[in-house]
Design a protein around this nucleic acid. Structure first.
Length: 620
DNA sequence: ATATCCTGTCATTAT
DNA sequence: ATATAATGACAGGAT
């Protein structure tokens, strides 16, 4: 039966190897039911003194996942997944995606209406209560059609700034119900943005500081272009909700985002209420992978972006992609050194305190310095493996038996340094073999006295008292067949037979106890190492979390600044520029950016806007 | 004198 | 049924 089990197990292992090679992870340990698990142990045979014990269940596992014994690549893969899950579990400030969709604001052509032939205003083609500043693909096509007339061709050079493009060179134009979008060659594609690197993140962090300084504020157009490009460069891949959005739209977002909204936009051309600026290529569907785009949650003011630190404790990781964290990790702590203090000050202290006080594990801090997970895992597993394979031999009764078998019959073997090294009061004598005539080393009188009086174990004394012709070691280590033969062939009395069996039982149990205790100590050591490793991992993840929070804050400030810039280029019916305290930009569930005036909290937006429109109409 | 550690031993269970 | 491994519990010596 045991052979059948082993045969089955071997086959199972081979199947597991094959599955591992094709990427299928199989936890064979559960099938083995502890018979040969863990697989890393070498089967030393049924008499191995170091076989599977429940202590092994406490080891050879990493974070609750069984270590795949045959496929390290899979282990690395699952370890990565595990790290990501742990980062997600840590939680992080959330950056609602609808707010970030405002990045998709595009340049608005504002040419001279006479030149561009756009006489119709408020024609009502769109609902009078709303004006699309930007629209999807359809509007983007229209925008392109108007571009030649407006003299806005070839403004793909972002670096030249808006003033070199049609944004400043051509008269401003606002279509009757929409603001045109440049959807031409995009020097900075979002595909590239999605792969923004560490340096880009660092420049983002630096850019916020520049934005925060009014003196560093460049010209409106240039600043807007630069800011938008910078924002898009640096933030897309770092934001969890944007990640899904960008991924959904990367293929189609090829818009020249470097262009800016033209200034002095007449508010009469747009309807403030439910005004929508939609990206030209923005799909009309809501990305299902972006829960933040839920209609009820979509319309959030940009100004609230930086408030995420106050109320939002929602975990960052829910939607985080691995790529995001790869870049965050690449950013490293070095980027934080260059971060502007003003940027750092925007972080909610309570948030950081929460980060530091996030005590998932309350572990002793004196467990050593941070360990690299790989090295620690390797050292832990390898050392334990080595100990099991090598150290066990010292306690292996099989090895002892083999050694004894090699010296049979009952050749003298001094095992006092390997097995019988424990108790001084119970250490066995150098074995004497009275019936075999083995030559003994001459002992001094003192030694003989010591051996006779001090080092004789109780069983040895009993054996001598019963005139047993075998030592304890011989009785314990002789094979069972020979032991049974000895019991039968020597004509021992029942008391002698009982003593022989007891001596053998106690001796084997003593070895078993030694092995058991060694395994227990090894298990404790392994667990301590794992604690140290997990603690270091936790510290590392917390650092990454703090870094992500700072990056989020930087992006939020960028958006706030850009929102102010966009609003400053718009004009109300009185020709006054819009201010952030009166208006805000929101992003709808469909990705459209909407200019919304400040509302009273008790009045619903749509109703209030319609009412305002009616009142305006009556006045006119 | 006491606490703690180490080791042997027993009882029990599983293989 | 027997032998043996594994392990918790206990006792006793050593420190």
């Amino acid at each position: 039966m045991q052979f059948a089990k082993k045969y089955f197990t071997d086959g199972l292992i081979q199947l597991t190897i094959l599955l591992s090679l094709i990427g299928v992870r199989v936890d064979i340990d559960s099938y083995l039911n502890g018979y040969y698990s863990p697989l890393i142990e070498i089967n030393l045979g049924p008499s191995s003194a170091y076989t599977q014990t429940p202590f092994h269940s406490l080891r050879d596992t990493l974070d609750g996942y069984s270590v795949h014994p045959k496929c390290p690549e899979l282990d690395y893969f699952f370890a990565s997944r595990r790290l990501l899950d742990e980062v997600r579990s840590l939680g992080s400030p959330r950056f609602p995606s609808p707010q970030l969709n405002a990045w998709l604001v595009h340049q608005v052509t504002a040419p001279d209406k006479a030149e561009c032939g756009q006489p119709s205003q408020n024609s009502g083609t769109e609902d009078s209560t709303s004006t699309e500043l930007q629209d999807g693909q359809q509007e983007g096509v229209n925008g392109r059609e108007h571009l030649p007339d407006c003299g806005q061709e070839g403004d793909g050079a972002v670096g030249a700034g808006p003033c070199t493009t049609g944004a400043c060179a051509v008269p401003k134009e606002i279509h009757n119900d929409e603001l045109k979008i440049k959807e031409e060659d995009e020097p900075v594609s979002l595909t590239h943005l999605a792969h923004s690197s560490t340096l880009e993140q660092e420049s983002l962090l630096g850019g916020v500081g520049a934005l925060s300084h009014p003196s560093g504020f460049l010209g409106p157009s240039a600043d807007t272009d630069q800011s938008w490009s910078q924002l898009l460069h640096l933030s897309v891949s770092d934001l969890e909700d944007l990640d899904s959005l960008v991924n959904a739209r990367l293929p189609e977002l090829d818009t020249d985002l470097s262009s800016a909204l033209q200034a002095d936009m007449c508010l009469e051309d747009i309807t403030l209420q439910d005004t929508i600026m939609s990206p030209p290529t923005a799909p009309q569907h809501t990305d299902p992978s972006s829960p933040g785009l839920a209609p009820g949650l979509a319309a959030l003011p940009f100004a609230s972006v930086c408030n995420f630190t106050g109320g939002s404790s929602q975990g960052l990781g829910d939607g985080l992609d691995e790529a995001v964290f790869e870049q965050i990790n690449q950013l490293g702590l070095e980027g934080l050194e260059t971060m502007d203090q003003q940027l750092l000050s925007c972080l909610d202290p309570q948030l950081l305190e929460d980060f530091d006080s996030d005590s998932g594990l309350s572990l002793e801090s004196s467990s050593g310095g941070p360990l690299s997970p790989g090295s620690s895992e390797m050292s832990s597993s390898s050392s334990s493996l080595c100990e099991e394979e090598c150290g066990a031999t010292g306690y292996s009764s099989e090895v002892d038996s083999k050694s004894l078998l090699e010296h049979r019959p009952w050749s003298p073997i001094d095992l006092s340094e390997s097995v019988w090294h424990d108790h001084s009061y119970s250490s066995p004598l150098p074995i004497t073999y009275p019936h075999k005539g083995i030559k003994e080393e001459p002992l001094s009188e003192e030694e003989e006295y010591g051996l006779e009086e001090r080092e004789l174990s109780r069983d040895e004394v009993r054996a001598r008292a019963m005139c047993l012709p075998f030592s304890v070691l011989q009785i314990v280590n002789m094979p069972v067949e020979e032991f049974l033969e000895v019991l039968d062939s020597h004509g021992f009395s029942s008391e002698q037979v009982t003593l022989l069996r007891d001596i053998r039982r106690r001796g084997k149990n003593k070895l078993a106890a030694q092995n058991c205790r060694k395994r227990k100590l090894d298990a404790i050591t392994g667990l301590q190492e794992e604690v140290s490793r997990l603690q270091a991992q936790r510290e590392r993840l917390l650092r990454d979390k703090r870094l992500t929070a700072k990056t989020m804050c930087a992006v939020g400030q960028q958006i706030q600044q850009l929102t102010r810039d966009v609003l400053s280029r718009l004009r109300d019916p009185l020709g006054q520029p819009l201010t952030p305290d009166r208006y805000s930009l929101q992003c709808g569930a469909n990705g459209k950016v909407v200019l919304v005036p400040a509302r009273r909290p008790t009045v619903s937006g749509a109703t209030g806007n319609k009412t305002d429109k009616r009142k305006k109409a009556k006045k006119q």
